[in-house]
Design a protein around this nucleic acid. Structure first.
Lengths: 211, 211
DNA sequence: CGTATGATTTCGGTGTGCCGAAAAAAGCCA
DNA sequence: TGGCTTTTTTCGGCACACCGAAATCATACG
């Protein structure tokens, strides 16, 4: 009852809750996965039958504890693989997503352990995404979404959304990386050291700063 | 038109010709792949329609040039990945097959190049199987199958069949590795240095010696 | 040379995951 | 509250890769 398709659904539902507090809806899920809504209805019903998600008709979709554990383990795979591609093969942070997307379904537990050891058990991937440990637990300090930070707030860039490689390149182009200290001017501009930089379109809702 | 299933068929047909001169039959293919003969008939018809194999009803199956190129590229993936697992992660030679079987379908060309470079462009995998180059060409010196070698013949072990992990462990247990020099006594015994060793059941038809 | 035997193919059918069109429910707004 | 729009579900269908049973072919032997 495990399959790449099941993994992708669980991973997407999990990932959604990292950026958004509201539970995901079928149409959002369909749009992120690039599938027709009817396909989502069908799969969600199967996932619910296996108690991986809870869902009543016409309602949103949330992970059960079992579903969350499974999702965390897939996310762990994905993020360890991304980290590994960057460190061992010189991939750029905007190039790793698609490769990891495929490999996460193919790597055995044993090999994943090997990669984890080789990397020294990293806790964050190149985008600053937390890597769940082998039990599915995540630890992560307090943060604010740049878009919601009060003007004047100064913090370190903890995380940049990897949903869109274009965004990653744009963020890099203005000199921001994971670890950069920035002071918020308003929702569209920050100060980095002496320089004041205009954020790329949509970037403010894809960047976390330390609180 | 490309899929893991197609890859597996082509790879198996290619691999067969490395150990056997006769072209493979549908029933042999079914047995190696662990599928029902009717499934093979169906897939072979699709492969023939795409000119990857040639096959007339009730006859054996051979690769076309296009099919051979595709197969060589998949075998290249498989063998590079096996070599990488052994060298970087300490897998034993009898443990790599299944992992490589999955990864060969998941690794991108770019990553495969990275692995190839990391390993220094190896020409043989841990079992002594030749790794085709990026164009699908293989170079390999003259050899004799141990089972067909004349008694008294001395040669270096070039290759041990990786079809059965059990056989690999048994061969290792009697002290034979790729590179070992051995003198043939008869089809069931060889001399290695001072010692005379009895070969495991079936090993003689799974070992190549230099000619 | 006819027939039994084994290999191969044909045929109908399965499960998974997807789709579009149409129906049903929910949300919204006057 | 009634009607309109959007979201979700239902329904019939498709492609892929597989299966078992039955029919067909090739061959080898008596």
């Amino acid at each position: 009852m495990a399959s790449p398709a099941v993994d992708d659904y669980l991973k997407t539902i999990y990932h959604h809750t990292e950026w958004q507090n509201d539970p995901i809806t079928p149409s959002q899920l369909a749009s992120v996965l690039g599938l027709a809504p009817s396909s989502v209805t069908e799969m969600v019903r199967k996932l619910a039958a296996q108690s991986l998600v809870s869902h009543r008709p016409y309602g949103p979709i949330t992970l059960t504890d079992a579903g969350r554990r499974r999702a965390a383990s897939i996310i762990r795979r994905h993020r360890l693989i991304e980290t590994w591609l960057v460190r061992e093969f010189g991939y750029a942070w905007d190039e790793v997503h698609d490769e990891a997307e495929v490999l996460e379904h193919a790597v055995s537990d044993r090999l994943l352990d090997g990669i984890d050891t080789l990397l020294g058990h990293p806790r964050f991937d190149p985008h600053g995404d937390a890597i769940p440990d082998a039990h599915g637990d995540v630890d992560r300090g307090p943060f604010v979404l740049l878009a919601e930070a009060t003007p004047g707030h100064t913090g370190e860039v903890l995380r940049v959304s990897d949903r869109d490689p274009e965004l990653l390149r744009a963020v890099e182009a203005v000199g921001m990386h994971v670890g950069t200290r920035a002071t918020v001017q308003d929702a569209a501009r920050v100060r980095i050291g002496e320089a004041e930089v205009a954020l790329p379109e949509g970037a403010a809702s894809g960047i976390w700063l330390s609180a």
